[in-house]
């Protein structure tokens, strides 16, 4: 099974009902896999913190949400994460396609890609990285279960090597 099918299956099994995304070039296969999941409504947002608002609103209404973003989009989301989700205890799954690590060609992606884990640590947001595509599904499911049990966002950082290809 490809990584994207693993991740989509993990999301379905965790009961995710809504996925908001700002695309990353490595995310295409996952978006296609999610479009094939009738249980998950996939929607495009214009900015990642807006997406955090959407998945948080879905949670208020009883639907589990996931935000799909690249690492730079986590940068765009930090204030919403810190001033909405954390103090008001609104959980979600953060699926972050990693940029700025091995294989990166764009120097503008490197500083935030390198800083994303320390930033999440500083906020107290738990984050996990699957090392092999085959373990991505279970890891995503467990991360989502942790998020909705602990009433906090939990991040899964998807290595660039899963997606292959270059990015924008």
């Amino acid at each position: 099974m490809h990584w994207q099918q693993e991740v989509a299956r993990g999301m379905v099994r965790a009961g995710i009902g809504l996925a908001a995304y700002v695309p990353d070039s490595g995310m295409g296969p996952l978006l296609s896999a999610l479009e094939a999941c009738p249980a998950i409504r996939v929607l495009s947002v214009t900015r990642e913190e807006e997406g955090l608002g959407v998945v948080s609103g879905a949670y208020l209404g009883g639907v589990r949400g996931a935000l799909l973003t690249q690492t730079s989009g986590m940068g765009n989301s930090l204030n919403a994460l810190a001033s909405l989700n954390l103090p008001q205890r609104i959980p979600c799954l953060l699926l972050v396609t990693q940029r700025g690590e091995l294989g990166e060609f764009n120097p503008a992606q490197v500083p935030l890609g390198r800083a994303i884990r320390p930033i999440l640590d500083a906020l107290g947001v738990q984050h996990y990285t699957p090392h092999r595509p085959q373990e991505a599904g279970d890891l995503v499911r467990h991360a989502a279960e942790l998020a909705f049990a602990s009433l906090a966002p939990v991040a899964v950082l998807l290595p660039r090597t899963f997606a292959g290809g270059n990015g924008a």
Binding site: G17, L18, A20, R41, L43, V45, E49, E50, G51, L52, G53, V54, V55, S56, G57, A58, Y59, L60, G61, G62, V63, G65, N79, A80, A82, S83, L84, P87, Q88
Partner: peptide, 25 residues
Amino acid sequence: NFYTWGAMGVVGGLGLGLALARPDR
């Protein structure tokens, strides 16, 4: 009532997510 006290600019997205999750309201 749901009050936010941060996340400036995000309440529209919050309402969108709730409206999609609860089409009955």
